[in-house]
Design a protein around this nucleic acid. Sequence first.
DNA 1: GCCGTTTTCGGCCCGACTGTTTTCAGTCG
Length: 582
Amino acid sequence: MTNKQIAEILEEIGTLLELQGDNPFKCRAYHNAGRIIGALTTDVHELIKSNELQTIKGIGQGLAEKLIELDSTGKLKFYDDLKQSVPPGLLEMLRIPGLGPKRIKIVYDRLKIKTVSGLKKAAEEHKLASVSGFGKKTEENILNGIELLQKHTDQHLYSEAKLAADRILEVIRNQRCVIRCDIAGSLRRRKEVIGDIDILASIKKGSERTLMKVFTTHPDVEQIIAQGETKSSVLLNSGINCDLRVIDDIEYPFALAYFTGNKEHNVAMRSLAKKYGWSLNEYGFSELGAEEKRGKAKRIVSCKTEEDVYGALKLAYVPPELRENMGELEAAHEGHIPNLVSEEDLRGTFHCHTTYSDGSNTLLEMVGAARDLGWEYLGIADHSKVAAYAGGLTETRLKQQHKEIDALNAKLRGFTIFKGTEVDILADGSLDWSDKVLSTFDYVVASVHSKFKMTEAEATKRIIKALKNKYVTMLGHPTGRLLLQREGYPVNMVEVINAAADYSKIIEINSHPFRLDLDWRLCKFAKEKGVKVSINPDAHNINGLRDVHYGVGIARKGWLEKRDVINTRTFKEITLLLDHTS
DNA sequence: GCCGTTTTCGGCCCGACTGTTTTCAGTCG
């Protein structure tokens, strides 16, 4: 059993105990343990073998015993019993914003409601308001919450979908009958949020059934939705739908382009083909007017790769990320496709938390992980003092952290740790650190973490006031939608970016879900205004560092060129950029 | 559940907000 699987079980135990109304500190102990195990770099199995499990802070005797049972038998009786006693629908109900374990327990105990649909019905029939502690407004909020939940239920983060898809792809690719195989669809275009996974494979003739069998019996498959010779659909245990399509190799580049999309890009490609007197579909180019049926139309242009398909239309290759019919075809025609940011370009990142505040890895561990990624620097930005919920630093702790950073920097060769902070922008737009404290940082990320129900004008004013502070380098998670399935505060990003340009501030982009489409447009506008962006994962552990690869910065690289992103510059240039804080 | 200890039991993160109450509980970050 992997650490990640163990971590998920511990987290779930914590949640189930909450739903049972167990001691909140006990619940927290399980959640803590889950987080800790999830961030470990050593396998739990190894720790058990070397008898070191209980040396980890947060793992005591009780948890150690459970982990040993889990490790040796692959099962945990305590967990299985717990699952039996809590209806699975209650876990689903927890995902409704504004509804927590206490109130779920109340509706379950009093009204015997154990599913989201049951809850919805009860709210619609105003049965909830009769329960003490519930009122009209709560009913409305629950209904709104359910609507929001259902709207996003079929959406998945790029990072999660990519991991799930890679596991399938690896198996398919290794089949002897497979000639070529790729991820297509929105996942290939690296959309921040995707609906389902599309996989395309070309195979040797006659092996369709074999491959479909391999696909539908993959260990990650939870349910087969459809199984045919050219297309099969499954539901993965990650909750994501996955389609596999099989085609002849000669059609591969056309099919790959077709199934990658997006739709608007495909339409534009087809109308361009028309200008050359051709018709383009997922099987190839054919003479206009001769597109009776697949295989019958004469293939008039032979293409081995997607590059050939674009080339046939006198276009430079368009990277999947840009295929949105947002001007990329014109750019490809003129040979102006931008030099996009890639993972290899990243030299470091600025928004990282450690155990000094709410991170789950130590400074040293974070630095080690960054070096393993081949980076040249890491910026540490732990929370400021008002963020007590996130273990915000006191000035004493801050001094201690700076001392530790200085000592490490003195030892490290070819690597630099930057002293940063994620300072709270307080309700009135002032900052949570004094100018004196702010002057001790290499850079300052300023973020809003409180009073989310602001009007757009209030939020914008608050942020712009913070940007005026001469010590602020960067605006943290700017678009104000902090969490999955939860509304944040509206911000007038046009005004904010204009202010960022006026005060030469950097705008951070990162992988917070459901605000990423906004970030994409934001990046484009920022570029036009000459505002630099910084690709930051808002990492809370060493695994989070890698999220930068999945985050908007890379995922939706869009028109972002290397020169527009500070993290991709050489170390020397970054220090220059940071200089304006001093 | 864990942790730390003046060692076997008491404390465990806190402030804002909301909607329900009539002084507070639940939820959130």
